[in-house]
């Protein structure tokens, strides 16, 4: 973190450094968000395909009651 306490405008080099830092952060953020999209899609597919967790096996309930 560079705190500019004086009132002078940024030099060209400083502006470039700032922009480069921001670009780099944005790229990493894009990668993370893209990864999360894929992850949540995969989780959704798995959840849709999965059987409900505590449902008895087919026919098991009837057998217990009869």
């Amino acid at each position: 973190m560079t705190n500019l306490s004086d009132n002078r405008p940024l030099t060209a080099a400083e502006t470039d450094a700032l922009r480069a830092r921001q670009r780099e952060r944005n790229k990493v953020m894009a990668l993370i968000l893209g990864f999360l999209v894929i992850l949540f899609f995969a989780i959704s597919i798995v959840k849709i395909g999965a059987k409900p967790p505590h449902s008895p096996a087919e026919g098991a309930e009837q057998a217990e009651h009869s």
Partner: peptide, 12 residues
């Protein structure tokens, strides 16, 4: 942009 408000953001 006001230079005073500009703070170098932390590196990822």
């Amino acid at each position: 942009a006001n230079p005073q408000a500009l703070i170098m953001p932390a590196d990822w």
